[in-house]
């Protein structure tokens, strides 16, 4: 077992986990943060994406023990009351079908909007390429990201 202090959603957690345990399982089984989802376990579907120092990262292939000192944001920590522009847009466009992939989608989109406040379809396709959605919500993901960009721009103007 390895002891490691992880900074998750702004809080520090001391964990004692198997040295090779991926962050995904540390989050889900040790910390009961189940918003991060398992689907492929090999880094190709994006269901398990979290932000590590702002970068979308597949938590199913990153050992938790190596992540001391990094800022980890899970879907629970993006904006717990659900008022992030992406969360609002996701609801208004009604993106989710089953919903299983959506945490990973939203976090990936959040990183995109941080870098590009007005993404084109092509920018979106490139950024979101690593996130599978079996239910086929892709057309709405595009729409919701653009709507979120508008919400964010409006909020920026108002504040």
């Amino acid at each position: 077992m390895s002891k490691v202090t992880l900074k998750i959603n702004g809080e520090s957690h001391l964990l004692d986990v198997p040295p090779d345990m991926p962050l995904l399982w540390a989050l889900r089984d040790t910390l009961n943060l189940v918003g991060t989802k398992y689907s492929c376990g090999i880094g190709v579907c994006g269901s398990c994406i979290v932000l590590i120092d702002g970068v979308p990262t597949q938590s199913c292939v990153m050992p938790a023990a190596g992540m001391a000192g990094m800022e980890i944001t899970t879907i629970e920590g993006l904006a717990p009351n659900g008022d992030h522009p992406l969360q609002k847009a996701w609801n208004d466009v009604d993106v989710p079908q089953c919903g299983y992939c959506q945490g990973g989608q939203i976090l990936t989109a959040a990183a995109l909007l941080k870098q590009n406040s007005n993404p084109s379809d092509k920018d979106i396709d490139e950024a979101m390429y690593g996130n599978l959605c079996r239910c086929g919500t892709y057309p709405r993901i595009r729409k919701a990201i653009k709507l979120a960009a508008q919400y964010a721009a409006k909020a920026g103007v108002e504040s």
């Binding site: 089984d29 009961n32 943060l33 189940v34 918003g35 991060t36 989802k37 398992y38 899970t74 879907i75 629970e76 993006l78 904006a79 717990p80 009351n81 659900g82 992406l86 969360q87 996701w90 609801n91 208004d92 009604d94 989710p96 919903g99 299983y100 959506q102 945490g103 939203i106």
Partner: peptide, 29 residues
């Protein structure tokens, strides 16, 4: 009319909903 899903608020904030999100006291895997 166009009505967003009732579970959306939970989905977009990562709240437990799915079968694999079930957590019980003393649960093993």
């Amino acid at each position: 009319t166009f009505v967003p899903g009732v579970d959306n608020p939970k989905i977009v904030t990562g709240q437990p909903l799915f079968g694999c999100d079930t957590r019980l006291n003393g649960m093993l895997y």
